[in-house]
Design a binder for these strands. Structure first.
Lengths: 150, 150
DNA sequence: TACTTTTACATGTATATACATTAAATACAT
DNA sequence: ATGTATTTAATGTATATACATGTAAAAGTA
């Protein structure tokens, strides 16, 4: 086990809270580095994958850009531009919302569903293998993270 | 307490491991959003702050770009460009390493140390307040994150 | 010495985040 | 009905990540 002090060559932290912030940032980087290499062969980014997952979760019901934004992991990301990227790759369709012309309905295409299906098993297996914790420990981690955010 | 399912409006996860990945990504975003607003008034980014902290930790000993890179939280970030940004703001000095002309020695300036000193107390307090856990819980979280990475 | 490999840093390009602003449509108030 | 405020999405710009490539110096080798 590589403790965070060793990983970033920092001798000590002010207190466990400040250590936890650094530990979270570092662990996040550990994940996304892996995720990026996983998604790369499929030509989409982790963020684009996340948008596709949100759309599939709608089961065919069109989703507005703002609704995608609300469900994204990073609330500061830009759903509008991500949808544009996915549209270019023909993984989503965009159409004007009939009852409110400000809104834009987004739907995942067959091609998008196919890529998701191909990736899903791989991603899920990788996620399991990447977390070196027991089921009990990972449940505890989830509870702590939920509580942490208040 | 807002559980991750509620926060991103996802009913359920494949297993606690996949839930933990999402939970980590989401909690990371929760942190950096706050950190950004904290650093903004000082004209530096969280990543630039981290580089300054690394340099201060050297206690006046010059640090090469690659050494900074090794100590960064995100191993894929670009220390060379971050140092360049800090140099423009006169928060660091750069000089050719005398014994190896490939290397570049980086030193934090007085101005850089001053900004760090101003920010430190603020950042540390914010980090404590932002983690809604007891000391025991946050210690446990640190242990779980260290173990998670294997 | 001359040639090859490696190291250290810089740079180029695509993607994404962070945040401000714009533009159009809708809702609201008088 | 008209003017104002709000909502929705798109866009502009700066910063950073991700990854490939370039360039010069140093190290290693025949």
């Amino acid at each position: 086990m590589v403790k965070i002090e060793e990983a970033i060559q920092q001798k000590e932290f002010k207190d466990p809270f400040n250590k936890a912030v650094v530990n979270l940032l570092y662990t996040h980087s550990y994940f996304v580095t892996n995720q990026n290499s996983l998604f790369k062969p499929y030509g989409i980014s982790p963020e684009q994958y996340n948008v596709l997952r949100i759309l599939r979760g709608q089961n065919g019901v069109p989703t507005t850009v703002s609704s995608i934004q609300d469900r994204m992991l990073n609330k500061m990301s830009n759903a509008s531009r991500l949808v544009e990227k996915l549209k270019i790759k023909e993984l989503v369709k965009r159409s004007e919302c009939p009852n409110d012309r400000r809104q834009v309905d987004v739907l995942i295409t067959e091609k998008g569903l196919k890529i998701l299906a191909e990736l899903q098993a791989k991603v899920e297996e990788e996620n399991r293998n990447f977390i070196h914790l027991s089921s009990e420990e990972v449940n505890l981690l989830n509870d702590l993270l939920d509580k942490l955010r208040g």
